[in-house]
Amino acid sequence: MKKRGKGIACIFYGTGYGNGFPDVSRAYAELQPDGKVAIYTGATEVGQGAKTALSQIPAEVLGLTVDDIIFINEDTSITPDAGTAAATRQTYNTGNAIKMAAEELKKELINIAVKELGLNSDAGLEMKDGKIYLKILPDKCITLAQIAAKQSEPLRTFATFTAQTVQIDPETGQGAPYWPYTFSACAVEVEVDTETGQVEIIKAAHAQDVGRAINPKMIEGQMEGGFAMAMGYVLYEDLGLENGRIWNNKLSTYIIPTAMDMPEIQNIIVEDPESTAPYGAKGIGEPVMIPVGPAILNAIYDAVGVRMTEIPVTPMKLLQAIREKEKQGA
């Protein structure tokens, strides 16, 4: 028999290294001869979209497009340390450092423009599309490439951002271990086959607090990826660990979800800007995974009335639990 059930779960997630450990990101912004801007930082693109999101931030600051940002993050000898691409920290931490470096560069560019254009002040100066111009008299205009040509050395700014957390007391745990926190919730509908113990996810809704969305499509991508990873965690993935040996050490036996297993997911991006974050944006790489697993487990209970306290809930384990329950009922 196939039985359906619904489940919900919600979570909070603390961003960054946490617990008072200095969580530092650094970045350079450098004007290029053609008027583009290069960002140098040690933040790794692991597939999460760092290169794109962290290019959108300086593009916004400088009135440029992402195509005008050259993002360099592959070489330790020319990039400053921006911490690890982990802890959901790059958008927030390195995003802040890059924003600050870009703002500093903007200030310098504006100052140069004031001089070059023979103006009395920076009032009413606009920086857009690779140009700085006076809004009330647009002919008073200089391009970033023209400014670059006048420099004997490349115009370069540097910024550091350090997140604020406070170490907890070792006896009581009192402190401020993370900042910021992100929030998310997930609801799923499952169908359990009581003959086979197989769980199919029929439908899901997934809401993620992002502070501010820098790139909504990439957030949705993360949400779907997190959903899939959580499905694997609670339903499929089993290392076959026995006396310290991993028996399922290839992807033919270590089963991860595929596109075929994915349900229809309604991804909901919730915006509530965080004042210490770049444009209010909080990281979401990890929290997008977290509520999905327990929502599935709660839905299984709603469907067949068994509480699965051990994961993964493989068909065999679920079938055993269902049989056990039937026996007790009979």
Partner: peptide, 21 residues
């Protein structure tokens, strides 16, 4: 832990949105 969540706490919105959906 004794930390005050001073801003950007839209948890209830998240819960309500998925429950409605």
């Amino acid at each position: 832990n004794g930390q005050i969540l001073t801003e950007s706490v839209p948890l209830i919105t998240c819960i309500k949105k998925v429950a409605d959906a």
